[in-house]
């Protein structure tokens, strides 16, 4: 990464540090009860002290997240291609898709536990339900925005429908697909935690729930920090994959 790009993160770093500094000072000055709102340094301390337990839960949550995200990617891509097949399919399936996003996950998650039990499956389903939508919508939009002139060119070459999709439309939709995937990646960890919060044997959601019910607020915060870091890591990972997969886009500035 170039120095210039690193410098671009400067303002964000400064702001973050400032907020944490203010928080630390407010707690230390006894303006709030440090048991109800632990200071950042105390949270970090708790995180390090409890890492042996936390790491097991983190691993579980990561596994659910990554599996759910992977399934959502395949599912979202497939759905985008399906929506693209004909205006009729688009018209009939799109409203259903949007409706699926209005179902409150906290209501659905307990049902999933009843249907699928306590292990991985219900969490993976929750993550998938959270994540497939932004991927499918972004990708479908990308496919729909193919330059009609380009379609004419392929038509003049007598390309089949699948050739047009494979040679021109899907590669052209990749930047949109990655924007969708980045949004999905940020949602995904939250999805897994919601699933675990309802019922689980392991995972950060369960850890937060048990810590909260035993009044160990500092541990809840420690788990939140891990969650945030995990989300950021996934976001970064998707950006990295995009950077490697689309060399033509990044290296020469976003032309087009």
């Amino acid at each position: 990464m170039s120095l210039k790009r690193l410098a671009g993160y400067g303002p964000a770093v400064v702001l973050t540090v400032a907020i944490f500094l203010l928080w630390e000072l407010v707690v230390r000055a006894n303006l709030v009860n440090s048991h109800l709102l632990p200071a950042p340094i105390a949270i970090m301390q708790a995180l390090v002290d409890n890492w042996d337990v936390l790491s097991v839960h983190t691993l579980q949550t990561s596994l659910e997240t990554v599996l759910g995200l992977a399934i959502a990617t395949v599912f979202g891509l497939g759905l985008a291609i399906l929506l693209d097949l004909s205006p009729w399919i688009r018209k009939s399936v799109y409203p259903l898709l949007i409706t699926s996003q209005t179902i409150p996950m906290v209501a659905l998650a307990p049902l999933l536990v009843i249907w699928f039990g306590l292990d991985l499956t219900p969490k993976i389903i929750v993550v998938t339900l959270y994540c497939f939508f932004p991927i499918a919508v972004a990708c479908a939009d990308g496919l729909a925005s193919t330059d009609p002139e380009l379609m004419k060119l392929l038509h003049s070459m007598r390309a089949s429908r699948w050739q047009t999709l494979w040679l021109v439309r899907l590669p052209g939709a990749l930047p949109s697909f990655f924007s969708g995937l980045r949004i999905a990646a940020t949602y995904s960890v939250t999805g897994a935690i919601v699933g675990e919060y309802v019922a689980a044997e392991q995972g950060l959601g369960l850890y937060m729930k048990t810590s909260a019910s035993s009044n160990a607020i500092v541990l809840v915060f420690a788990a939140i920090v891990v969650t945030a870091l995990l989300s950021l890591f996934l976001f970064g990972l998707v950006s990295l994959i995009e950077y490697i997969a689309l060399p033509w886009q990044q290296r020469f500035g976003q032309k087009r």
């Binding site: 330059d147 002139e149 380009l150 004419k152 060119l153 038509h155 003049s156 070459m157 007598r158 021109v168 590669p171 052209g172 990749l174 689309l246 033509w248 886009q249 032309k255 087009r256």
Partner: peptide, 16 residues
Amino acid sequence: AGKVGYMPQQPLLLPW
């Protein structure tokens, strides 16, 4: 279609 080499008004090169 398929019997001519057609070059449309824009060059339409694929950026990837």
